[in-house]
């Protein structure tokens, strides 16, 4: 599903070139869940951006369901994202002037889905917000905003869901509820999940784990090894 081959990412800081990702190489099968963990500045979000085609690697290949992202232009990558990917962000990224229902409808309408409104309403119901469809983001709590973001991410039935610190802006109780909802929906929809997080307990719920330090993979656990590990514990 996701294949990453010898990926490097350099950035120019003016006077010198900085390598923020170094020889990243792994693959994740369809339906699996991958947790990307590491300290601040280790390159987690940069890697997520590359996997989602929001940015391009300096070197190496990334294939998202067989689509070589670096071979596509900006619009081509946007098309792949529109067809395959859903997103959940730490800062929710809802459009402030649209209400909950309209925020969920947005990706469906961009894809030209005919029954966008019914589908969006259905997904708001799934995340427990059937009664708040016409509320604007600022009228919703942080947890509720993230539920709207989850509904928006799942509504187009994406093959991959990219989540960047989805509980990072929430208190622990709300964070736990959102995490449960995320994993439940993910399992139910058979979506491949890529999750960037600081939270080790959240990471532990994923089938795969990738730990970054200074842009390099320092730990890689695939599903089989994790099962073994858990059995051993």
């Amino acid at each position: 599903m996701i294949e990453v081959r010898n990926v490097y990412k350099h950035i120019d800081t003016g006077s010198q070139s900085l390598t923020i990702l170094h020889d990243i190489d792994f693959s994740v099968p369809a339906g699996a869940s991958l947790a990307i963990v590491g300290r601040s500045g280790s390159g987690k979000s940069s890697l997520l951006a590359l996997l989602a085609g929001l940015d391009l690697p300096t070197q190496g290949d990334i294939l998202l369901q067989g689509n070589a992202l670096q071979a596509l232009d900006e619009d081509g990558r946007a098309k792949v994202r529109g067809q395959l990917a859903g997103f959940v962000f730490q800062s929710f990224q809802l459009l402030p002037e649209l209400n909950a229902l309209e925020n969920v409808m947005l990706p469906l309408e961009l894809a030209g889905v005919a029954d966008a409104e019914q589908r969006a309403a259905h997904w708001l119901e799934r995340v427990g917000l059937a009664h708040r469809t016409d509320h604007l983001p600022r009228q919703l709590s942080g947890g509720e905003q993230q539920r709207v973001a989850l509904a928006r991410a799942f509504a187009p039935k994406p093959a991959v869901l990219f989540a960047d610190e989805p509980t990072g802006s929430l208190d622990s109780a709300t964070g736990a509820v959102i995490a449960d909802l995320l994993f439940d929906l993910n399992r139910e929809m058979g979506t491949t999940l890529v999750l960037v997080t600081h939270d080790e307990t959240l990471a532990a719920r994923c089938s795969h784990l990738l730990r970054l330090q200074a842009g390099q993979i320092t730990e890689w656990l695939a599903a089989d090894e994790r099962t073994l590990l858990e059995t051993a514990v």
Partner: peptide
């Protein structure tokens, strides 16, 4: 910000 989000959600530059 709106444009960045629209692009992330798959909207082409033309759209």
């Amino acid at each position: 910000d709106t444009v960045a989000l629209l692009r992330t959600l798959g909207a082409s530059q033309r759209k």
